[in-house]
């Protein structure tokens, strides 16, 4: 697993209180990991902080799964 993927996973485990094994690439924040809309906003903010990036709202809307987050960050992290 890439460094980015493992850091993303750690944030999700921490914020959503889910088991590491549940955080698969395909897992959807809302459908599989029990996040509500506020949890999702918080996750995006945590990703921004961890990777020192800004994720615009219209991009954030497209980040629905663990894999979406990892690929977005891989493309945009400095």
């Amino acid at each position: 697993m890439s460094d980015i993927a493992s850091r993303v996973k750690a944030i999700i485990v921490d914020k959503l209180g889910v088991d590491e094994t549940e955080v698969t690439t395909e897992a959807s924040f809302t459908n599989d990991l029990g996040a509500d809309s506020l949890d999702t906003v918080e996750l995006i903010m945590e990703f921004e902080k961890e990777f020192n990036i800004a994720i615009p709202d219209d991009q954030a809307e497209n980040i629905g799964t663990v894999g979406d987050a990892v690929s977005y960050i891989e493309e945009n992290a400095k």
Partner: peptide
């Protein structure tokens, strides 16, 4: 201005 979404609730 970066406030946690759970701040207010």
């Amino acid at each position: 201005p970066r406030f946690n979404p759970f701040f207010i609730p």
